[in-house]
């Protein structure tokens, strides 16, 4: 089951990262977002960090283990937004 927030994040990822050939259905909430799975790269990680800051007011350390954990897949990302959003 995909939550409303997860659905919103799928659109955020597709729009921000200009994933023109990807649909929300293609993003499996439990699959990795980076390298494997969706196949995003390090520039995408920075871009996504910026988008989270703009949309939800969440500031992350760019190269910490914690950030790595939050960016693992869509579910961990949704949990982060749920917990830390200020907007």
């Amino acid at each position: 089951m995909t939550s409303e927030l997860e659905q919103e994040l799928k659109h955020l990822i597709i729009d921000t990262l200009e994933l023109e050939d990807v649909t929300p259905e293609d993003i499996d909430p439990d699959e990795p977002l980076f390298v494997e799975g969706l196949g995003l790269d390090s520039i995408d990680a920075l871009e996504l960090g910026l988008a989270l800051q703009k949309r939800y007011g969440i500031k992350l350390e760019s190269d910490s283990d914690e950030t790595r954990h939050h960016f693992r897949n869509l579910r961990t990302l949704a949990a982060l937004v749920e917990e830390r959003r200020t907007a």
Partner: peptide, 9 residues
Amino acid sequence: APLSPARFG
């Protein structure tokens, strides 16, 4: 305003 890392790259 912050720059887009992808655009900057």
